[in-house]
């Protein structure tokens, strides 16, 4: 019946007549995508990529932790297919054998910034597009996660958005 189905439609829509609540970005909510092992990988990569990115006053451990959380938030908003692709990339880096084959690194905790930087360079200039795109994905996520944060802006002399009040 016309009015019946219209009524059902109205009921269904009753709760919808507002703007979309855009999800909060505050990473204090805790990790939703990256497992502890994946967090370790991202932390090691971020540490090497952001060498010298922090200003002297900045507490390095805190800044890196914020970057890893930022990557988690960013990945959680990607299309599911892309999240799966990223998961495969991380799997490559978590698995001890494939990690050693593609990066030369035994364990992340022993690697240190110099060894991690060497593997990143290897991927960056690789003749395999798969590794170049893996490097690019890590570069994009790490740089975005750190430089989206206001804490990053002093070092690059960015004053932040203007006050429009």
């Amino acid at each position: 019946m016309q009015s019946g189905s219209a009524g059902l439609v109205l009921l269904a829509l009753a709760n919808c007549g507002q703007k979309t609540a855009l999800p909060p970005i505050d990473p204090a909510y805790g990790f939703t995508v990256l497992s502890p092992s994946q967090q370790t990988v991202i932390h090691a990569v971020a540490s090497a990529m952001l060498v010298d990115a922090f200003s002297p006053a900045q507490e390095r451990a805190g800044a890196l932790a914020a970057t890893v959380r930022g990557v988690d938030v960013a990945v959680s908003r990607l299309p599911l297919g892309t999240q799966a692709e990223f998961g495969q990339l991380l799997q490559l880096l978590e698995n001890p054998l494939t990690r050693w084959l593609t990066t030369g690194i035994g364990s992340w905790s022993d690697a240190g910034d110099t060894r991690v930087a060497a593997f990143l360079d290897r991927w960056r200039y690789s003749r395999f597009t798969l590794l170049r795109s893996g490097y690019d994905a890590l570069h994009q996520l790490v740089m975005a996660a750190w430089y989206a944060q206001p804490a990053a802006w002093t070092a690059i002399r960015y004053p932040g958005p203007p006050n429009i009040a």
Partner: peptide, 24 residues
């Protein structure tokens, strides 16, 4: 903007940071 520029600028580590110190 910061993310657009830092993700587009090739490289990482000291070289990248040095380049981005001149962002303005």
């Amino acid at each position: 903007h910061p993310v657009l520029v830092t993700t587009s600028t090739p490289g990482f580590g000291s070289d990248h940071a040095r380049l981005l110190a001149g962002f303005d």
